[in-house]
Design a protein around this nucleic acid. Structure first.
Length: 387
DNA sequence: ATACCTTTGAAGCCA
DNA sequence: TGGCTTCAAAGGTAT
């Protein structure tokens, strides 16, 4: 059985943050790998690559027409459970939706979309692991090292950005904001809060002037044993974003507010600490630009479908890189925000259809059986999700 | 202006 | 403990 820490066991330093699910996943992957190994033993290694490539290409090519019944988008859980016995070789096929979005089909028509599928498996992200800061308590201040990921080797269109969390720790002297920091994420510094006040030693106005990646992690509580001298100001973690992502008031504007208003405002604008990115999210972040370039797609939904297939097509070792990265991210996140819980962000996104569906499901009259209630010919009466 | 779509994985919640 | 739900990113699209 593969070990997540096999590649960076020393870096983990005994942390036990590896999710059990990952281990289970790797058990499956391991079995798959065993199968693949047997296959490889029976044939040239290239055959395996071709098999994998053909699985994806074939599936993508067939996506415009022959879908897999019952494997529609959104039915991931059930479909996967039901198809588990089919084996991993069929994984990419059973995951395919009945029909891809038109834009995706168009994108897949582009020859470069399929041809470039497995050409480049250089994952610069994994290199960043090598200069990840040691766990807190190490009591050491390792020498800042230049990022090991070779951005020069990246294609011009590729902007391999892992999570800002990782980017910050990977760059000893960050001087500019990550390219992927969107307005939605919030570039400006969030307001101070009691529990995070130590992170925000700058006024909001001055913070707004500073690049996003300035040394937010230089606060003593954020040193994590990897402090970088020469950064005078403490900047909050990039995962902390204002709820709305809107520009916050300048100091002189805020002075016009009464204290009560300010208090209420602060409560309302309490910065959100985002969840750490999981392995697949990290993979998407890195590979998105490449897929966009290869497939001439822009719609994230379609791109994510492709990335999902590529993710399944990755070898166990390749996926392990991202699992390890994600584990590090979680570890850092936990160290930075010990009291944070994923529950803190629950309910911050309004989900239109699901709320409607929940309303319908709370209806005493057998909610989840729209089909039984209204019949196939009355689908207009079905609730949205059932429809 | 904001939710939805779409993916996988992590985490929380509930029975 | 298993199953379900929510959120993380992203950007075009729909409401």
């Amino acid at each position: 059985m593969p070990q997540l820490d096999a590649g960076g066991g020393g870096a983990g330093g005994g942390d036990d943050l590896g999710a059990p699910d990952e281990l289970l996943a790797f058990q499956d992957e391991g079995e798959e790998q065993d199968d693949k190994s047997r296959d490889s033993a029976a044939g040239p290694e290239r055959d395996l690559a071709e098999l994998k490539s053909s699985l994806v290409n074939e599936s993508e090519g067939a996506a415009g027409g022959a879908g897999v019944p019952g494997a529609g988008a959104g039915a991931r859980g059930g479909a996967e459970v039901g198809a588990e016995a089919l084996g991993r070789e069929h994984a990419s096929q059973r995951l395919f939706p009945d029909k891809l979005p038109e834009s995706l089909e168009d994108g897949l028509k582009a020859p470069e979309c399929a041809s470039g599928m497995y050409k480049d498996t250089v994952y610069s992200a994994f290199n960043l692991l090598m200069h990840y800061p040691p766990p807190s308590g190490a009591g050491q201040h390792p020498q800042p090292q230049p990022p090991l990921h070779n951005k020069a080797s990246q294609p011009a269109h590729s902007v391999p950005q892992l999570s800002p969390l990782y980017e910050h720790f990977s760059s000893p002297h960050p001087t500019s904001a990550p390219a992927d920091i969107s307005q939605k994420q919030g570039v400006h510094r969030p307001l101070q809060t009691p529990d995070l006040s130590g992170f925000y030693s700058l006024t909001s106005g001055s913070m707004g002037q500073l690049p996003h990646t300035v040394s937010w992690f230089t606060h003593p509580s954020l040193m994590l044993g990897s402090g970088v001298p020469g950064h005078p100001a403490a900047i909050p973690h990039p995962a902390i974003v204002p709820p709305s992502g809107k520009q916050e008031l300048q100091p002189y504007d805020r002075s016009l507010k009464t204290q009560a208003e300010s208090k209420v405002e602060k409560e309302a604008k309490k910065p959100t600490i985002k969840k750490p990115l999981n392995a697949f999210m990290l993979y998407m972040k890195e590979m998105r630009a490449k897929v966009i370039a290869e497939c001439t797609l822009k719609e994230s939904a379609a791109i994510n479908q492709i990335l999902g297939r590529r993710w399944h097509a990755l070898s166990r070792e390749e996926q392990a890189k991202y699992y390890e990265l994600a584990r590090k991210e979680r570890q850092l996140h936990m160290q930075l925000y010990p009291g944070w819980s994923a529950r803190d962000n629950y309910g911050k996104k309004k989900r239109r259809s699901r709320e409607k569906h929940q309303e319908s499901t709370t209806d005493p009259g057998s909610p989840k059986k729209c089909r039984a209630r209204f019949g196939l010919n009355q689908q207009t009466d079905w609730c949205g999700p059932c429809r």
